[in-house]
């Protein structure tokens, strides 16, 4: 078991013929995934990956032909909003948007529409998710993690890899690792995923990787104190960040003194979450 994706997921790649999309779709394909289709408007009828994966003009047609139920999006920011709406309109259950730099205005509309359609969204501006040995949806490298009992939730990309890798070096594996993205408006939140991991029989403990900006980590702390029985270990990046400066991620900004790492760490510590001082320490704090 795992959450959101497993070996039965039927994966569709929007933007499969673009540079990035093609490279990562190939990595996913080699990982042993069911990459069942690609979509690039105007390139319907072509085949990729040695003629094994068909390309369609629209998500709707691709879904009808292949039974895809998960879509991963690699299209540029200008078109990503439309791609998400298209996937939701076609009835895709889980949409994973890797693209970064999508305008907030677009994301507000997309999120609202997806909620109405009942599609789940991960991202945007995220590395996607991985259930080791079963499904890799996005860009998290496959060789830095292995199957195990730790659920990982993160707002970051490479920082997550750092943690997964440190865990693997100590022989600790992952049930599912989900990168929820660093944008101010995104899909599934810490709370949604904490709930899923709490209910997942193969997840025994959870790693939460946060960063400065917003109050999502504080809300997660509140949720943990009310509903979580499984232990949580956390790391918050940006303790040395100055306020008023956006640190790469659109969401990572300390505004008028709120959203600091200190506040987040305090909120999590108060509800019994162990805090790692640096990313490699997370692996040490987990139960083996």
């Amino acid at each position: 078991m795992s959450i959101l994706v497993n070996k039965n997921s039927r994966i569709l790649v929007q933007g499969i013929t673009g540079n990035e999309g093609n490279f990562h779709a190939w990595q996913m394909y080699q990982y042993g995934n069911n990459v069942v289709a690609g979509v690039t408007p105007g390139k319907g009828g072509e085949w990729v990956f040695e003629g094994k994966v068909p390309v369609f003009d629209s998500v709707k047609v691709a879904k009808e032909a292949t039974g895809a139920n998960v879509s991963v999006i690699f299209v540029p920011a200008h078109f990503a909003g439309d791609a998400m709406l298209e996937a939701a309109d076609a009835g895709i259950e889980l949409i994973v948007c890797i693209t970064e730099g999508i305008p907030v205005r677009d994301m507000m509309r997309v999120r609202k529409y997806l909620d109405q359609k009942g599609s789940k969204l991960i991202g945007p501006n995220c590395p996607g998710l991985i259930t080791p040995s079963e499904a890799k949806v996005g860009i998290i490298p496959g060789n830095i993690t292995m199957p195990g009992n730790v659920g990982v939730i993160s707002r970051s990309g490479t920082l997550t890899y750092e943690v997964l890798y440190a865990m693997m070096l100590l022989g600790i594996g992952t049930s599912t690792c989900v990168g929820i993205g660093g944008d101010p408006i995104s899909g599934l939140s810490y709370i949604d995923l904490l709930e899923m991991f709490e209910l997942d029989p193969l997840t025994d403990q959870i790693v939460l990787i946060g960063e400065i900006g917003g109050t999502d980590e504080q809300k997660a702390a509140d949720y943990i104190s009310r509903y979580m029985t499984k232990p949580v270990v956390a790391f918050i990046a940006g303790q040395s960040a100055p306020s008023g400066k956006r640190m790469g991620h659109a969401g990572a900004i300390i505004e008028s003194g709120s959203g600091t790492a200190e506040e987040k760490i305090k909120a999590l510590q108060e509800v019994g979450v162990q805090i790692a001082r640096h990313p490699e320490e997370i692996a040490i704090l987990l139960n083996r």
Partner: peptide, 21 residues
């Protein structure tokens, strides 16, 4: 550093060890 989160974490660990990014 590659990645915003990891870049922040790298700055943090420098500070923890008494350095200044």
């Amino acid at each position: 550093v590659n990645g915003a989160g990891l870049a922040m974490a790298t700055m943090d660990i420098i500070s923890q060890f008494g350095g200044k990014p």
